[in-house]
């Protein structure tokens, strides 16, 4: 089942200054968000296969939109995350079906990288509900400078029978990281963790 998309939103954030200090070069991140019809709103559906297919389609589409919005190559993306919010008449499990089984492979294909797990969050909510998309390094989940998050909200979504599906990517870690831990130049790259 292809997703029935009502609208797509892209957001690009560029930070020039944080903590009264210049960020050079500016840190840049983007989110791409699709608002889709929830085919199973209002009734219990045992087989969520169609939502898994929808997730597979959106993983690639949203990743491509976000990368294009940042105007960089997929390989330059350093961190990523995903999230979904189901409208009032849907189930949390609908968000899980979209995000978890098949969303990641096409997302990683767009980036050409992605050994690390894609951090995620999900919730149910009404119109304008804020979605905090977690961000983590694409190749090594323990890279501490890249633990981050991006808030997105769409004023008119999700309606009761809709689902918001979002990805976020960043071309760098947090501005001025200085709390230690694994750094990106120490990545071993064997297990997606370190």
């Amino acid at each position: 089942m292809p997703p029935e998309i009502r609208k797509i939103v892209t957001i690009v954030e560029e930070v020039m200054q944080e903590g009264e200090r210049q960020v050079a070069p500016p840190s840049r991140r983007a989110a791409a968000v699709a608002i889709i019809r929830n085919p199973f709103a209002g009734h219990y559906q045992d087989d969520l296969g169609p939502l898994i297919e929808i997730g597979e389609a959106l993983g690639g589409l949203l990743a491509a939109r976000a990368v294009a919005a940042l105007g960089i190559e997929g390989a330059q993306v350093e961190s990523y995350g995903k999230a979904a919010a189901v409208g009032a008449d849907g189930e949390l499990e609908h968000a899980a079906a979209i995000l978890h089984p098949k969303f990641g492979a096409p997302f990683r294909k767009v980036l050409g990288t992605g050994a690390a797990l894609i951090p995620s969050s999900k919730k149910r909510g009404g119109l304008g509900v804020p979605l905090d998309i977690p961000l983590g390094h694409t190749d090594a989940a323990f890279v501490r400078s890249h633990f981050d998050g991006m808030e997105v909200r769409i004023a008119d979504a999700p309606r009761a029978a809709e689902i918001i599906v979002a990805v976020a990517i960043a071309a760098s870690g947090r501005p001025h990281p200085r709390i230690g831990g694994l750094t990106k130049d120490q990545i071993i790259g064997a297990d997606g963790l370190r």
């Binding site: 009502r6 939103v9 954030e13 020039m16």
Partner: peptide, 16 residues
């Protein structure tokens, strides 16, 4: 003018 950050937000609406 001291700029801290910018944000660009684009909606593509197919139908309502």
């Amino acid at each position: 003018v001291a700029l801290r950050k910018t944000l660009v937000y684009i909606e593509e609406v197919f139908h309502e």
